[in-house]
Every structure is written in C-alpha cells, then in structure tokens.
Nucleic acid binder design. Structure first.
Lengths: 334, 334
DNA sequence: GACTATAATGTAAACGTTTACATTGTGATA
DNA sequence: TATCACAATGTAAACGTTTACATTATAGTC
C-alpha cells in the first residue's frame, strides 16, 4: 500500500501539502493541487483511515448494535441509521448481538475500541446494571427500544403498552370478547409492556383474561406457529388473536389456515411492528405501526449531537404508535 | 479516554507489559498480569483499535457492501458474513450501495481506506470496467452474485439461469403452457440470466414465448404488483406466473387476489430466492432456494484465505439451486 | 563464586496521518 | 530600497499502539 509519503515524493511536494489537498483544507496552489491529484491516481492512493483517526482524534465512525440483521425490522432500522450517518459524512459500523448478553457486551466493547463518535445500542438481553455502567461511561451512547431508569433522555423507544392496547381495543370495538394473546417468551421490556397493554385493554372493557388464552413462545414465525398449535389443542373458544409482533402473526396465520379455519371470518389477527411482511400476508395484516426509520435517524442525530456538544440539544421526535387497519380483522361470527 | 500509558503508570509497569497482558502474547509474570488487569478495570481501559491497526499493520476488519440492509435477502447474507468474521476474530464493516453506482464505488473506497483485511462486494450497479479495476488492485476482493470475466475464481454466485429454468420447467411439467414472466427492470446480470432460464425452459418444451406475457418492473413488492396489474389489463390468457424473486411474487399474489382470482387454482406462481417471506405467504410460495448463508460464509472464508495467502487455497462450495415445492403451484384448470 | 541460560521487563522506533509553527516567496506600500 | 502582508509550503511533533532489541533478575551448573 502506498503511503502519503509516496504521493508526496511523486508529486514533488511535502506530505503536509498532500494532506491539505486530500482533505480540502487550507489553501494550496492549483499547481500543487494538480500534481498531488495526479500522483494519487497514479498510485491508487487512499488515505489510511486508522492513521487518520489517530492523528485527527476522530474516527468518523458511528457504531451500532442490533440483535440480528436478518430480521427485517432491524434491517430497516440500520438502513435508516446508515443513511443518516452517511449524510453526516460518517461510516456506520454495525455489530450483531444475537440476543446474547455476552455478545452484546462484546459488541459494545468492540465499538468503543474503534473510538466511535456515536453509539446506537439495541441490546435487549444485557443486564440493566451492565448497560447502565456503559451509559455512565459513554455520555453519547443512545439506547433504542429499551428504557433505562435515569437515562430516559438517551432512550429512543415507543410506547409498547399503548401500541398493544390500541390493537386489542380495536378487536374489542369490533365485538370480540374471547381474545387470545400470543406473546414473546423473551424476558425483556417490550414483552412485558405489550402484554400489559393487552391486559389493560381487556380490563378496561370489563373482560376477564383467561390464562388458557395467553401463551408465549420465541418471537419468530415458528414460535407463533407453535403457540397457535398449542392454543388450538386447548379447545378453549376464541375469536381473535393479538400477537407480540408481525413475525409471530405470520406463524399464527399459517397455522390457523392449516387447521382449516379462515382469517378473518373465523379468527381475527392483529400484529405489531408493521413490517414489510404485514403487507405481504394474505389477508394483509392489521397491525401496529411505529416509525422505524425515524427512530433510526433520530438515534444517530441524538448521539452525534451529544458527542458534538451542540449548543441546542437535539430533541428526538415523539414516536407515535398507531393502528393500521388492513384485512385480518373483522367482527366475530354470530 | 485513558491510554495504555495511564494503565502502565497505575499498574507500575511499562507500556510494553500492558500491551503484552492485553494481547495475551509472550510471557508475563502473574503479578504484573494481575496489576495490569486491575488498573485496566479501574480506568475502564480499552485498547484503541485505530492505533492498534496502525502499529500492527492489520485492521482486523472485514469490509462488505450490499445494496440495502432492509432487504431480508441481504440481511441474511450479511448475518452469515458477520458470523463467520466474528468466528475468525474479525469485525465486519458493512456499507450500503443503495443500487447506485456512485455510492457503491464510494463504499468500496471507504472500505479500502479502513485497511480491511477482507472485502466482500455485492455491487450490481457499478460498471464492469470500474469493478475490474478494483479487483485488479485488491487481490482479496471477492464478488457476490456477480460474475466478472477474468475473475471467476473470486466470484461467488449461483446459476441463475438454471434456477429460473427449474422453476419454469416445474410449471411446464404441471401442465402449464401459457406462462407469464415478471422480471426485474434492473439492467444486471441476474436479471438477464433468470430471463434466459425462463426462455430456455419454454424453448425446450417447444412453447412459444408471448412478448405480451413478459413484463419488467422494479424487483420489489410494488413492482410485482404493478406488473401484475398491467398483465391482467392485457387480457391475454395465462395460467401461471414465474417471478424474478420472492418479493415480486408477493406483490403478484396480492394483485391476483385483488382481482378475485385464486392461487393456485386460477393462477400458479413461482418465486426465486426462498426468503423467509416465502414461508409466510398464503399459500406458501413454491420457489427456488439458494444457500444465502453458505454464500456469505464462503465469501468471507475465500477473501481471508487469499489475504492470508494460505498454502492450500480455499475452494468455495458449489452453490446448488433447487426447487422448493410449497403450495402456490398446481395443475392448470381444464 | 563465576558463569550461563532463561524469564520478565523496559526502551524506543516504527506505523501513516494531521497540524501548529516556521520558513520562503511574492507583490504592494511607503 | 526597505518594509510589510499574506499566500504557499515545509518541518517536525504529536496521536496510541506494537515489537525488535536491550537490559535486568533469577536460578542452575560447574
């Protein structure tokens, strides 16, 4: 690999001049400028980002962790993060935690070691205490989809309880009384909040929550399917299912069909997240929308604004959840 | 941020000893070791990856570009890449090209500047010539899903033509004779190959390809839907649709239902890619499977093996495409 | 006690940039 | 002509590590 010194030699100028040309900083004569650019092309030269970060004391890297990039929900979020980072001239370094506290912690350490000048963390498995320590240590670390006592102003998340509440209220308004809930077995914040929203809506309508109609499984397609099989085997009548997320709803729908029932005529289904997937399902899924793109964008903006110690601090949008009515819900039969 | 010097001072040893402890290299007395570790914890110290890369002349970063992380196909691929990278002790730096040749090129430059020790490039929009220049310059750069003359041994891709051929042959074997093709309007390799596969299967069966039944649009849900509307408006009879990919198939299915037709009874549909999505659709989508995970894994393994100049070069698996029969295809009526 | 082999540690020179400061060259002004 | 202002450029010291080499301490051997 050629270095800046090689370019300087070839262009017959000093390294400082090369650096100035390549960074567009300070004044350089048109002649030197040209010579440097030619030498650069000749050598296919490219500044070394590591050396640059070291000298400059700024890595131009924003770090992010996310559980799993193959999940379109996180894909969409990261996409928004990278877009925003790129717009600010930064590069996004993404690591996956795979729902494992150890890997999540390793990922954060890794990002710190790269001297990230922004940190967006989506880590649901790590212990609160450990996460707090990092939040304390890195003032510009921002949390997504997790609320942490004492750091609310650096947590970007939606009102999960309200979301699920809206979903279930919608079912109740349609006339459903026997509503099942297929939740996530992950012991995290979102899971608790969404279940609370379900119970709240029931309670508010004076409906009893039947424990036999409340199940939990892994928050993926397969989990939704498995829970549905279990639910059907219990022979407890129900007319609607509220799901922890769209992925589970997809599994739920597939098993309902498998059982020879129809959606929404026999069973109404609501999801949560409003993934791309929701529009692909048939019938199209009624679900709770939340603005993933804006969350990703605001997380980056918030983190960098803290890092830069901007005079007027960045205030993230309030992320409204709302119901998107599609075709998977109708009135119960009879 | 504390530096290695601070740790050395606190632990009352030299920087070299700290470095040795933190890198697990060479022999260090248990006493020094302990002192260093304590000092490290005390200062929350973390080696600076940039300085490390500079001194060490090895960044421990593997770079990758992909068009768009919100697309589950790429998400799945990147996930496999990161897994493999992590297993080797490297960090994956992912950049998005957003189907834009300029951004793709910028992404590659960016990765080069970070001194990546492995390069996995999924860039379909860049001109062949420009890409070749990079391939020439970076011997360990590996291409995914794109074949480049003269660099076949560094291209990881599937046989698109064969895939589409299998899909269409399946339709023909079921008795279909009037088969529509909804392809991608992107002017890339995959698009041409898959269309060629479609034509080949038709030709082999002695069937005529009706130009009115061949459409193109953006390779996403919306594109599939738009093409289907156009197709239906043409009033040319058909009994099956072969799609460029699963995303388009989802749009196709949704419009077919919208038109009051049923799948597969009125229209059979085949996709391509076998995304997670294919199993979510109703009916579940018959499609062409290819091993995204293994491709991601092998891309990383190949790139690093070249970088390391391994004595015995890594030979990527041959990536077999095959038909996955689900529920979206049946015999044509009558 | 003198010597040697070896383990543990320290010293200082890289690595490839950026940038404060110093130097040079040029034209304008008095 | 001497002086000044200013633009263009160069010099060299950081930045935080790693690591070759040098040094010191320790134990074993004769």
């Amino acid at each position: 690999m050629a270095t800046i010194r090689d370019v300087a030699r070839l262009a017959n100028v000093s390294v400082a001049t090369v650096s100035r040309v390549l960074n567009g900083s300070s004044k350089v004569s048109e002649q030197s400028r040209r010579a440097v650019l030619i030498a650069q092309k000749e050598l296919s030269f490219c500044l070394n980002a590591n050396a640059r970060a070291l000298a400059h004391q700024d890595s131009e890297i924003i770090g992010a962790t996310v559980p799993d990039l193959s999940d379109p929900y996180f894909g969409a979020m990261i996409r928004a993060c990278e877009r925003t980072a790129q717009l600010q001239g930064f590069t996004l370094l993404v690591l996956q935690g795979f729902h494992d506290p150890l890997r999540e912690e390793k990922a954060i350490e890794n990002l710190i070691s790269h001297q990230c000048r922004g940190l967006i963390i989506h880590a649901l498995s790590m212990k609160e205490q450990d996460l707090k320590a990092y939040m304390q240590r890195i003032p510009y670390m921002v949390l997504v989809n997790r609320e942490l006592e004492g750091f609310k102003d650096r947590c970007i998340s939606i009102d999960n309880e309200k979301g699920e509440y809206l979903a279930v209220k919608h079912l109740i308004e349609k006339g459903h009384k026997k509503i099942a809930y297929i939740g996530s077995s992950h012991k995290i914040h979102d899971a608790f909040e969404r279940k609370a929203g379900f119970l709240k809506a029931l309670h508010e309508a004076g409906l009893e929550a039947d424990p036999k109609l409340i199940l939990e499984d892994e928050p993926y397609l397969e989990g939704g399917a498995a829970a549905t099989r279990l639910l059907l085997s219990r022979k407890v009548p129900f007319t609607a299912i509220a799901c922890y997320n769209d992925n589970m709803a997809a599994g739920v729908m597939s098993e309902i069909f498998e059982a020879g029932l129809s959606i929404p005529d026999d069973v109404s289904v609501v999801g949560f997240d409003d993934l791309f997937l929701a529009r692909c399902l048939n019938p199209k899924l009624t679900t709770i929308h939340h603005p993933v793109d804006e969350m990703g964008r605001d997380a980056v903006l918030l983190s960098t604004s803290i890092y830069n110690q901007s005079p007027e601090p960045f205030i993230p949008s309030t992320f409204e959840v709302n119901l998107v009515e599609r075709k998977s819900v109708t009135h119960p039969k009879a």
